[in-house]
């Protein structure tokens, strides 16, 4: 008779790891999404609509683009369709992010897969991928789901707060919070510093995505990294993990 399987690690351990990894993003999201909430109010959405959209979208650039379309002086009767399409286009990158995270999870199946990556955003992806590729949590599916949920709920809180009070955050404070995201993400990229090919892809993305943006728009963030990734696969490497 085989020995009974070991007890699963306690949930508290996973929650502590989620808090440690995601706290910066959670706090930043509250302030960052206040701007989204304010834009939503100006475009005519009520607080419930703002919360619903933020909960599942979790993408400030996409939501801001949609609100700008709705709030434009030239918005016609079908502008709401353009707003939805804009959100979808800006968020196409989530497909690649979700696929990348799913590929690192131990056969989650459909239900657990949805729970793990259903609320993934660019920010939670930046937390999840380095963690899964480094010292992975012992409950990776729960970890992924909780990071996504925590980021999403903090975004909802910030958006509703911004919708309700619509107060202006001092410019320098808002700017510094805006800068915190890329600065923090840069340190997350560094976690894979020993994988030169990943760093090469990150560097290529950093250089080429802004250069391609005038030509490709929102698509630059998905098209450029996919092309560079495909090209680097042609480079033979014996050290790649």
């Amino acid at each position: 008779m085989s020995a009974s399987p070991p007890a699963p690690p306690p949930i508290g351990e996973t929650i502590r790891l989620v808090v440690r990894d995601a706290l910066v993003v959670i706090l930043t999201f509250v302030v960052m999404f206040m701007g989204v909430g304010r834009a939503s109010a100006e475009a005519g959405l009520n607080a419930l609509q703002t919360a619903f959209m933020t909960l599942f979208t979790v993408a400030a650039p996409a939501q801001a683009a949609a609100m700008q379309i709705l709030d434009s002086d030239t918005a016609g009767a079908t502008a709401w369709v353009a707003a939805v399409v804009a959100v979808i286009i800006v968020n196409l990158r989530f497909m690649v992010m979700a696929a990348s995270i799913l590929g690192r999870l131990p056969n989650p199946g459909v239900a657990k897969g949805i729970g793990a990556i259903g609320l993934i955003s660019a920010s939670s992806f930046a937390i999840l991928l380095p963690r899964l590729m480094g010292e992975a949590p012992r409950r990776p599916i729960l970890y992924c789901g909780l990071v996504g949920l925590a980021c999403s709920l903090s975004a909802v809180f910030g958006a509703v707060l911004g919708h309700q009070i619509a107060t202006a955050v001092p410019v320098l404070v808002g700017t510094a919070l805006g800068a915190m995201i890329p600065i923090y993400f840069a340190t997350l990229i560094a976690r894979q510093g020993r994988h030169r090919i990943l760093m090469l892809n990150a560097l290529a993305g950093a250089v080429l995505v802004p250069l391609a943006a005038p030509l490709l728009g929102s698509f630059s963030l998905i098209v450029v990294p996919l092309v560079v990734s495909g090209l680097t696969l042609l480079i033979p490497s014996s050290k790649e993990a």
Binding site: F125, L129, F185, I197, G205, P225
Partner: peptide
């Protein structure tokens, strides 16, 4: 996908 993911991260960092 891992490489594309890091390319996206690099793009997010520089753009933002």
């Amino acid at each position: 996908l891992d490489r594309a993911g890091y390319g996206i991260l690099g793009g997010i960092v520089s753009s933002s």
